[in-house]
């Protein structure tokens, strides 16, 4: 067992884990943060997406021991002080989920990427958003409402570059 200190959702946590414990399993089974879902465990579906130091990553492809000294944000911490993140609100308003299995992965993917665009002062076009949501799998919605939500959130956050 290895001792790991990391920050999860703004709080310092210390864990004793086996080297082979993935970040996804550590979050779900050790910290009770079951919002992070596991689908394929091969990097393909994106259900397990979390933010590592603000960047979206597949938590099924990262060992918890690698996260020592880093900061992890899960879907549980996207809302702050009772206020939904613009991406969460857009998902609600645009009906961008059905069964909801894929939703935490899409929320972290989009929130992380749009927050970073705000920081960098860059904008995303339709094509960028389409490619971005293509990173994760949704078996229910057909993606159209997810794209609509992504557009709405990006516009609200000032990082949407509408077609000219």
């Amino acid at each position: 067992m290895i001792e790991v200190s990391l920050e999860v959702n703004g709080t310092a946590r210390a864990l004793r884990v086996e080297a082979r414990t993935t970040l996804a399993d550590a979050l779900r089974e050790r910290l009770g943060l079951t919002g992070t879902h596991l689908g394929c465990e091969q990097g393909a579906c994106g259900a397990c997406t979390v933010l590592l130091d603000g960047e979206p990553v597949r938590s099924c492809l990262l060992f918890a021991v690698q996260c020592a000294g880093h900061s992890v944000t899960t879907v549980e911490a996207l809302a702050s002080e009772g206020l939904l993140h613009p991406v969460q609100r857009a998902f609600h308003e645009r009906h961008a989920l059905q069964c909801g299995f894929c939703t935490p992965g899409f929320l972290t993917l989009l929130a992380g990427t749009l927050d970073r665009a705000v920081e960098l002062g860059t904008t995303l076009e339709e094509r960028d958003l389409a490619e971005l949501v293509g990173a994760n799998l949704c078996r229910c919605t057909g993606y159209r409402p997810i794209l609509a939500a992504a557009r709405q959130a990006a516009a609200e956050m000032g990082v949407w570059s509408a077609p000219g």
Partner: peptide, 12 residues
């Protein structure tokens, strides 16, 4: 680089 996998895979 934009053609290598998806963004979260590219981050690592």
């Amino acid at each position: 680089a934009g053609h290598v996998a998806e963004l979260p895979v590219r981050v690592r």
